[in-house]
Design a protein around this nucleic acid. Structure first.
Ligand SMILES: [Zn+2]
Ligand SMILES: [Zn+2]
Ligand SMILES: [Zn+2]
Ligand SMILES: [Zn+2]
Lengths: 152, 152
DNA sequence: TTAATGAATGTTATATTATAACAAAACAAA
DNA sequence: TTTGTTTTGTTATAATATAACATTCATTAA
């Protein structure tokens, strides 16, 4: 799951600062539940599943139910603080929530490691496709599954 | 749902011919259930949902159960005769099952129309990303949600 | 301060999507 | 025909997600 060394504590502190700032910018409230879910996703080494998060949440908050978690996830997704991996039905932190770059994911089916990336060519591709078809883009999913360098 | 004019009948006949050929090439058997599911997806104007297909299937085959449909879907996906839209948990026919081009989808959230496309720049992007990271690619999902030309 | 408002959460129930596990039948090929 | 393999049948359940409505909390207007 998660490490607890000093460096990691600093990293999540920083992530929370950024999340707080982004919420303020959008007039959105980073409530306790939302903050907790954000932390849980943030410290998870692997893509987090909704019901796994729920189980974690329930350790501190017995009243948590599925809607609790899905509402928090929706909120965090909306603000771009996390991403949903649609091929896995799982959630990961965004590595660059302050930049608006469209991102994509490499998913290793062997070791389960997921890498988030962005790429100028990808950004251009999206723009080109949208423009050429008069398509008003709201959201994209780009996920590549296969074997990572370690697992080939 | 589906039209029943002569032209459409010819189209699905042709699609079934192609599917049959592809199955033969892979030493795979296009059984009755599989053929029926393929037809149902093929004639559907909208992305088909698994349990919707199941309901249709059960009209002719009361013994059909969830595994019936998911096995058929897996088979058709494996051969590239259909695609799964992961953002919708729905299935659509492939418009070019004989060509191996990687494809992507434009999904209109207003009228539900889904357009399958392929694009040389997309193919190159995938190749570049995979190569630069020593990633052995097995499958990709690229789905763009927004408003189509009609709905903007 | 209090009342009104809207946002967020609590709660119950249920819908939707998908798979595990094992038995029976159909098929292929020796 | 026997044998091994693939496909299907069957039952049960797992996993993911949302609807609907009540309650609480936070913000602000009176
Ligand atoms: Zn991101
Ligand atoms: Zn790996
Ligand atoms: Zn296709
Ligand atoms: Zn549309």
């Amino acid at each position: 799951m998660s490490h607890s060394c000093q460096q990691h504590k600093q990293q999540i502190e920083e992530a929370l600062d950024i999340a707080t700032r982004i919420c303020e910018q959008h007039g959105a409230r980073l409530t306790d539940v939302r903050k907790r879910v954000f932390e849980l996703i943030w410290v998870s080494d692997q893509p987090a599943k909704a019901y796994g998060l729920l189980t974690e949440l329930q350790k501190n908050d017995p009243s948590a139910k599925p809607p609790t978690i899905y509402r928090a996830l929706d909120f965090l997704l909306e603000l771009g603080l996390i991403h949903k991996l649609h091929r896995l039905n799982a959630y990961v932190r965004c590595t660059h929530p302050e930049e608006k770059k469209p991102c994509f994911f490499l998913i290793c089916t062997n070791c389960q490691v997921v890498t988030e990336s962005h790429d100028q060519a990808y950004k251009k591709l999206i723009a080109k496709i949208s423009k050429s078809r008069d398509f008003k883009l709201h959201a994209t999913t780009f996920e590549m599954e296969g074997l990572c360098q370690q697992c080939v």
